[in-house]
């Protein structure tokens, strides 16, 4: 396989009463090796469930109804959606790891840091001796720049700050050398000076290891700081995808443009902020045509009748909008 991860036609649905409701609609993603890929969008656009689907962590009644997720693992190519529960468990942490939004709630409050790091090691390397595990844990803590690692190993989560806990989460996620790290809003719960520390750390770790990162966030600033490729999600679809410099410099889709204008007009000349009218349509209330049509300044007649396809507007720059291509989604 050329890419590390290939997602094709991924559809995720949920049940509402007796109705099946689509939450994610035909998403294709290619994650290259040693790449940092950003997924950006507002709440409810489907960015987190995409990550959860990769790891087989979708909570009932959410389920993958169609599609494939192929992954180039350490021992050959695998179809993640067809793995048994046991195979999936052994892939989590060793092949693909995840860090979550709230470091304060993702660690177990009744175990100290050493026990929680041990657990991750023991699961994948049962033959490892106690002193080896301790050595490996200390090394990881040093790599994520924890001051006084010995003392930290004996600490419980409530004794540590949010920034330190997120470093420990990253250390645990990387302790078995996974090739893919999913980071779901890793800095949203942190203060801005701590966020700067964590983003710098993630950038450094990516340079040192061969790990690819999928960064899921609502913050375009975080994307600009850390990612090479970006996909913009809206209402369960990708609406635009490009290299980060291309995306910020030659923004094509009106939604992306609106998001960028909403954040960059802060502190700008005009007192009046730019706003995108209306709200994101929730799953189950998507129109047949372009899902952004009701909020779009440039909405045309045909936008309400047919769904535009995701087409290449410039080399490597994909956009789902009739302003750039006439092509209709099949």
């Amino acid at each position: 396989m050329e890419n590390l991860l290939e997602i094709r036609d991924l559809k995720i649905t949920t049940l509402r009463g007796k109705n099946t409701v689509k939450l994610l609609d035909k998403v294709d993603l290619d994650i290259k090796k040693k790449c940092s890929f950003g997924i950006v969008g507002e709440s409810g656009c489907g960015k987190s469930i995409t990550a959860n689907a990769i790891l087989g962590l979708l909570p009932y009644p959410l389920q993958v109804s169609e599609g494939s997720i192929r992954y180039d693992s350490k021992d050959g190519e695998k179809e993640l959606l067809k793995l048994s529960k046991k195979e999936m468990r052994s892939a989590r942490g060793r092949e693909i790891s995840m860090i979550f939004q709230e470091p304060m709630t993702s660690l177990d409050p009744i175990f100290n840091v050493e026990m929680q790091m041990d657990e991750a090691l023991t699961f994948h390397h049962p033959q490892m001796s106690k002193s080896e595990k301790r050595e490996r844990s200390l090394e990881m803590l040093r790599r994520v720049n924890i001051p006084r690692p010995e003392q930290t190993l004996a600490s419980y989560p409530h004794q540590l700050s949010g920034g330190q806990l997120q470093r420990i989460m990253i250390a645990i996620a990387l302790i078995n050398d996974p090739r893919l790290l999913l980071a779901d809003e890793p800095t949203t719960a942190l203060d801005v000076t701590i966020q700067a520390q964590i983003l710098k750390l993630m950038n450094d770790l990516k340079e040192q290891n061969d790990t690819s990162i999928i960064m899921i966030t609502h913050d375009l600033g975080v994307i600009a700081e850390t990612c090479e490729e970006v996909a913009v999600f809206y209402a369960g679809q990708i609406v635009e995808q490009a290299n980060v410099i291309e995306l910020f410099g030659k923004t094509a889709h009106p939604y992306t443009l609106g998001l960028l204008r909403a954040v960059t007009s802060l502190g700008g000349e005009s007192r009046k902020l730019y706003t995108i009218p209306g709200i994101v349509p929730p799953g189950g209330q998507w129109s047949q045509g372009c899902r952004f049509a009701d909020r779009c300044e440039k909405c045309m007649e045909k936008c309400r009748q047919a769904m535009p396809a995701l087409t290449e507007a410039a080399p490597g720059h994909y956009c789902r909008c009739f302003l750039h291509s006439e092509e209709v989604e099949a």
Binding site: V192, A196, G221, A224, V244
Partner: peptide, 10 residues
Amino acid sequence: AVPSHDPTNK
């Protein structure tokens, strides 16, 4: 510490 919105100017 505020992330900038310009990827060419990290």
